[in-house]
Structure formats: structure tokens, C-alpha cells
Design a protein around this nucleic acid. Structure first.
Length: 578
RNA sequence: CGGGGUGUAGCGCAGUUUGGUAGCGCGCUUGGUUUGGGACCAAGAGGUCGGGAGUUCAAAUCUCCCCACCCCGACCA
């Protein structure tokens, strides 16, 4: 491709609409333009990246036994009534009516449509297992689209659905997908982790999220330095530390702590460490008031609390200005005598049990207690794991210390079980002629999100640094002076040679000054830049520069093609799988 | 959905407080000089000032309504 024939509108300045790095750089590199909130046009270079990611995904899905198909984006409401999700999905579902006033939606996902197909066409266990997938636009009417491609309302996604006769079959399909995903993100040149995740509302037993590690990620994950363990912090189980358990219990003492509400303020005021404070948080759990106790230096994991209680919703009950509602002073709440204040249940993190002579709120404005001891001064309904995992906690598998990183979720694999097959009546006959529900799994990859994640992970102050296999082009070639026919003749020749050699090359043939073309090349992030300058004319030498390292090598014209092949292979080497 | 903010040329912004001929930088067009890290000189083009209603002799500027977009939160696979 020649730059003069393409549409690559790079921007010198950062558009005001973009706050996120990937969003800014994709706009500036001329790959992306906004059409509406959360809706974007992919320009030629951006679409090439998408196509390259899709190609890798296709190859790996096919390798794992997947078969591609195309499903409708417009889906009839009837299917969603059947699965029960028309009412459950809520306002995130893009709904529309046709001219006959019939209800439809734009598919946010395709369980209904694919299960409908399979129930009609698959009758025998002998037709299983079946791995069907599609890559296409999906729609979610996000309350707040943001971060450019990372959270849009229209996005490209790969979804594969597995259909097996039993749990064992599902386990095999699930493992195949786990491996395929690992290969895909490795081939995309990304640094990622597969983490155990909360299965959430979708149900099902096992689920892993594939996280691209990037400081700007929305999700926090912990991973082990000693083994393969990694998990979403929301999911990661915590072990209770048991130090201090043998100290002698002292008499409880009421102390004035005027103005000290936060753990830090109290710790400073009373000159104790935060670990010696019992932090008491009040939640409304489906309307009931529940207290959760954790050590002062810990945070409550609301998801664990919610799962433990088995409630639909929990919400922090005390906020600035809402104190009167329960007659409890914000910042001075404590477990002692709390049940008399209308609290139905007291949960405590396991670590709290081992605290001795701790500090806790006295449920009186301006007062705390010293020397509070669990089970002597107050009763806990349930001890459990209610805190958020932290860096340095010990690994639940091998007890090595955990580390923490932020990540961007680019894929997730789920064991669905029989939820949809039962709801929609997708069954097969087994050897005995019994009708059994098909056991399903679903496996998604956000294609456009992966593209954005790659930019979040690979960039510097000059622009994007694409991994070779998903870069819009592998090589950019340019003449320093496009008006110098000696240079352009060489450039044209090399351009031709590289194309004939099957190297993915773009020729920046604009008559811009070299600085402009250099800046654009850095911004767009082609992995290799090949420059034809005076040394090419006088000494037969071409300049080859690597975007990722800045390394510059000069090579004879005749060696250029084979050398570039070598460099491309080297850049790819770290993630070469076969 | 709650809170906050912004809409002025393709992009980034000033002008709004105090109403009086719509500006700057970049980009774009033409001519010339340039050509190894976003060149220089000269001449140009480009605006319903987000939309509507109102106040006024006069509205980018004041009032009311609406819309779009962004940020924080809540929500979510």
C-alpha cells in the first residue's frame, strides 16, 4: 500500500474527547474516529489491525476444532422471552421494533440464537461435540461508554459455543479453549494472565478471564510468584493471619477520640497501628442491616459478603449525611453493643478473631473503646473470608507471596452447563434413547478491545509500539527526499521486492519532509522502518530501524529482504508457538 | 441514573465576567524557497459561535428549554 493512496489522517494534537492512552493514540494515528458515544469507525490502518487479530483467532479456533458461522445481529424478542433474558437483561439491551411493531434486539451475545439453531438441527449424541463460533459486531447499550474501544456500545467479538453430551465433554472443550486462548494472546504478542474469576450472574462453575497486563487496566489481579495461580482480586481467597493471638486480654476502656473518624486518624490519635483497629462497616443487604468487621488495614470485599449472604444487593449503609437514619455516628461504629442498635447480623473476617486488645468504635460520637476482644466483648455471627486480597498475601496454592497488577479483560471462558439448553429445550438422545440436555460452554474474545489493550500495553511518548503480528503493516519504507529520483527509484525497487517476498509493507511516498514521515511512523507504530537516504545512493546502504528498541542497522540493498525476514522472525520469536 | 464539566473553522484553544465588525496556533489551498526528526516567506479559503425560544436598537456573550460529548460515581459480561 502507498500512503498517498490510503486514508491515514494522523493528528498532531490530542483530541479533547480522549482521555485514555489507547483512545488518544488510535485517534492520533488515524486508525479510529468517533461517530457517536461508544460507536466508532475503523479507518484503513485500524481495520487492518482488527483483521490481523481476527485471523489469529480464526486459525486457533479452527485448530481447536471450531467451525465458523455467521449469526444475525438482529434477533427476535421471542428467543429472549424463552431464555428469560428479555426482562432480565435490562436497559443494556439495544431494543427495536419493526414496522409491524414486533420486538427485536441487537445481539449483545448469541446464546439464544445458537441454542435455537442447535435444538432444531442436532438430535443425537453422535453429532456432539460441536464447537461453533462467529466473529461479528455485538451491541451493549452501556450506561456510560468510555475509554474509546475499551468500552464501546458497538464492538467486535468472537464467541464460540461448545455443545457436549455431558460434563466430561464440557471439561475437554473448556480445556481446548483455554489452550487456544493462551495461544491466541501469545501470538498477538501480549503479556497476559489467565485468572480465576467470579462467575457472577451467568452462573456456572468454572470461569477464567484472560487479562492483558497494563497499568491502566480496570481490573485488579493477584498472581503468584511461585506457581501459576492468578485471580481477580474480587475472587482471590484470603488466609487469615493469626499473629497476636496469645496476648493477655485487658479490661475494656472507653476513650475520647474527638474528630478521629478514619482508621488512620484513630491510629494516630491513640498511637496504635491500623492492624490493631477493628474496622466496622454497615451494609444494607436486601434491606437488612449487616455489619462487616475487618482489620483496620484491610478492605471489605463486597462480592464475598454478597455471595456469603446469598442476597441480591448490598449497599454501604452509612454515608456522610445519612447518620440519622440508624442513629449511628459515622466513624465511631463498633461491634460492641451493635446488635441493640438494629444490626441483624455481624460478619467478621477471620483475622479479626485473632485480634487482642483492639480498638473499635463505641457507637457514640467522639468515642472509641480500647482493649476490645472478639468473643468476649461482642458476638460474631459468622467468621469468614470477607476481605480483599492484597499484595504480599500468601498464595492459596503454594503459600508464596502474591503480587498485584492491573489488567484489561480481553477474553473469558465459561462453563454454562445446561442453563440455556434446558430453557430452550436443546436436547439429544443418548445411546439408551434417553433425552438429555446438551451441556454448553461459551468463550468470548473482544477483538476491538484486544486491539485497544495492545496499545495500552505497547506505547511510548512517541506513539504506538505494535507487536509484529497485529501491526497494521510489518514494515514502512520511505525515501528521505521524495523529490530525489535517485532515492525514489531505490525505494520503489525495495518496495516491489518486499511485496514479492510476501512482507507486509507500506510505502510512505508523500513528498513530506522526512521529519513528518518519521513522526508519523513512530506514532502509527510500524515495527520496522526502512529509510532510503543519501547513503543508499552513495554507499548502497539502507537504514533499518526497530520501533520497539530504537536500534538502527545499515544493510546492503541486496541483503535487505532476507535481513528483514530475519528481523521479523526475531521480533516474533518470543511468541513462536510451533 | 446521581454529581461535575465542555460545546466557537478539520484539530487544539482564546473571546463570555462588563452585550457593540468572530480571533490565535496547527492543519488545508496557491506560488516560491527548502528536504535526516512535525521547515520558511507570501497570498488565500474555511464559521447557521451545539439547537430552539426569549430579552435588547444590538446576543458567542444575558434568560429559559432542549441536545450532544467528556469526567467521577453507581451499574454490568
Amino acid at each position: 500500500m502507498r500512503v498517498t493512496q490510503a486514508l491515514i489522517p494522523t493528528l498532531r494534537e490530542v483530541p479533547a474527547e480522549a482521555d485514555t492512552i489507547s483512545h488518544q493514540l488510535l485517534l492520533r494515528a488515524g486508525m479510529l474516529r468517533r461517530v457517536a458515544a461508544g460507536v466508532y469507525t475503523l479507518l484503513p490502518l485500524g481495520y487492518r489491525v482488527v483483521q490481523k487479530i481476527e485471523r489469529i483467532v480464526r486459525e486457533e479456533m479452527n485448530r481447536a476444532g471450531g467451525v465458523e458461522m455467521l449469526l444475525p445481529i438482529i434477533q427476535p424478542a421471542e428467543l429472549w422471552y424463552e431464555s428469560g433474558r428479555w426482562n432480565v437483561y435490562g436497559p443494556e439491551l439495544f431494543r427495536l421494533k419493526d414496522r409491524h411493531d414486533r420486538d427485536f434486539c441487537l445481539g449483545p451475545t448469541h446464546e439464544e440464537v445458537i441454542t435455537d439453531l442447535v435444538r432444531q438441527e442436532v438430535k443425537s449424541y453422535r453429532q456432539l461435540p460441536l464447537l461453533l463460533y462467529q466473529i461479528q459486531n455485538k451491541y451493549r447499550d452501556e450506561r456510560r461508554p468510555r475509554f474509546g474501544l475499551l468500552r464501546g456500545r458497538e464492538f467486535i467479538m468472537k464467541d464460540l459455543y461448545s455443545f457436549d453430551r455431558d460434563e466430561e465433554g464440557l471439561e475437554i472443550s473448556y480445556r481446548k479453549m483455554y489452550e487456544a486462548y493462551t495461544r491466541i494472546f501469545t501470538r498477538c504478542g501480549l503479556t497476559f494472565r489467565a485468572v480465576e474469576a467470579d462467575s457472577g450472574a451467568i452462573g456456572g462453575s468454572d470461569t477464567h478471564e484472560f487479562m492483558v497486563l497494563a497499568d491502566t487496566g480496570e481490573a485488579e489481579i493477584v498472581y503468584c510468584t511461585g506457581c501459576d495461580y492468578a485471580a481477580d482480586v474480587e475472587k482471590a481467597p484470603c488466609r487469615a493471619e493469626t499473629k497476636d493471638a496469645c496476648e493477655e486480654m485487658l479490661d475494656t476502656e472507653l476513650v475520647a477520640t474527638p474528630g478521629a473518624r478514619t482508621v488512620r486518624e484513630v491510629a494516630e490519635y491513640l498511637n496504635v497501628t491500623p492492624e490493631r483497629i477493628i474496622k466496622t462497616l454497615l451494609y444494607e443487604a436486601d434491606g437488612e442491616l449487616v455489619a462487616v468487621l475487618v482489620r483496620g488495614d484491610r478492605n471489605v470485599n463486597e462480592i464475598k459478603v454478597k455471595n456469603f449472604l446469598g442476597v441480591n444487593q448490598i449497599e454501604i449503609a452509612l454515608e456522610n449525611g445519612s447518620e440519622e437514619k440508624y442513629g449511628l455516628p459515622l466513624g465511631y461504629v463498633g461491634p460492641v453493643g451493635l446488635k441493640e442498635k438494629g444490626v441483624v447480623k455481624i460478619l467478621a473476617d477471620g483475622e479479626v478473631r485473632y485480634l487482642r486488645n483492639a480498638v473499635a468504635g463505641a457507637n457514640r460520637m467522639g468515642f472509641h473503646y480500647r482493649n476490645v476482644n472478639p468473643d468476649r466483648d461482642f458476638v460474631v455471627d459468622n467468621y469468614g473470608d470477607f476481605r480483599v486480597a492484597e499484595e504480599g498475601d500468601s498464595c492459596p496454592c503454594c503459600h508464596q507471596p502474591l503480587k498485584m497488577r492491573r489488567g484489561i479483560e480481553v477474553g473469558q471462558i465459561f462453563k454454562l452447563g445446561t442453563k440455556y439448553s434446558k430453557a430452550l429445550g436443546a436436547t439429544v438422545l443418548d445411546e439408551q434413547g434417553n433425552e438429555i440436555p446438551i451441556v454448553m460452554g461459551c468463550y468470548g474474545i473482544g477483538i476491538t478491545r484486544t486491539m485497544a489493550a495492545a496499545v495500552e500495553q505497547g506505547h511510548d511518548e512517541d506513539g504506538i509500539i505494535w507487536p509484529v503480528d497485529i501491526a497494521p503493516f510489518e514494515v514502512v519504507i520511505m525515501a528521505v527526499n521524495q523529490r530525489d529520483s535517485l532515492q525514489t527509484e531505490i525505494a520503489e525497487k525495495i518496495y516491489e521486492d518486499l511485496r514479492n517476498a510476501g512482507i507486509d509493507v507500506i510505502y510512505d511516498d508523500r513528498t513530506e519532509r522526512p521529519g513528518v514521515k518519521f513522526k508519523d511512523a513512530d506514532l502509527i507504530g510500524y515495527p520496522i522502518r526502512l529509510v532510503v537516504g543519501n547513503r543508499a545512493v552513495t554507499d548502497n546502504l539502507l537504514e533499518i530501524k526497530l520501533r520497539s528498541t530504537g536500534e538502527i542497522i545499515y544493510k546492503e540493498k541486496d541483503e535487505a529482504v532476507s535481513y528483514l525476514r530475519e528481523v521479523l522472525n526475531r521480533l516474533r520469536k518470543d511468541n513462536n508457538l510451533t
